Simulated scan of single mutants.
Amino acid sequence: MKAFRELVESSIESGSLAGVEDLLADDVVFRSPVAHKPYPGKAITTAILNGVARVFEDLHYVSSIEEGNRSALVFETRIGDTTINGCDFITTNDEGLITEFTVMVRPMKGATALMEAMAAQFPQIEADAIAFTERQR
Rank of each mutant, 00 (worst) to 15 (best):
M1D: 06
A3Y: 00
F4D: 00
S11M: 14
S14T: 06
G15C: 05
S16W: 04
G19W: 03
E21L: 11
L23K: 07
A25I: 09
A25R: 07
D26P: 14
D27W: 01
V28W: 00
V29S: 01
F30G: 01
F30Y: 01
V34W: 11
P38N: 13
Y39D: 09
P40A: 11
G41M: 00
A47E: 08
A47G: 05
I48R: 09
L49K: 03
L49Y: 07
N50P: 13
G51Q: 01
R54E: 15
F56P: 11
F56E: 03
E57M: 05
L59M: 09
L59Y: 05
L59W: 06
H60G: 08
H60S: 08
V62G: 13
S63W: 04
S63K: 04
G68F: 13
N69Y: 00
R70K: 02
S71P: 02
S71Q: 06
A72R: 08
A72Q: 06
V74E: 05
R78M: 02
R78V: 07
T82E: 14
T82Q: 12
G86S: 11
G86N: 14
D88L: 00
T91Q: 05
T92Y: 12
T92P: 01
T99R: 07
E100C: 08
F101C: 13
M104S: 15
M104D: 04
M104Q: 08
R106L: 03
P107E: 08
K109H: 00
G110Q: 14
A111E: 11
T112M: 10
A113R: 05
A113Y: 02
A117D: 01
M118S: 01
M118H: 12
A119L: 11
A119N: 13
Q124E: 10
E126R: 15
A127S: 02
D128S: 01
D128K: 11
D128R: 09
A129W: 07
A129N: 07
I130E: 07
I130F: 01
T133D: 03
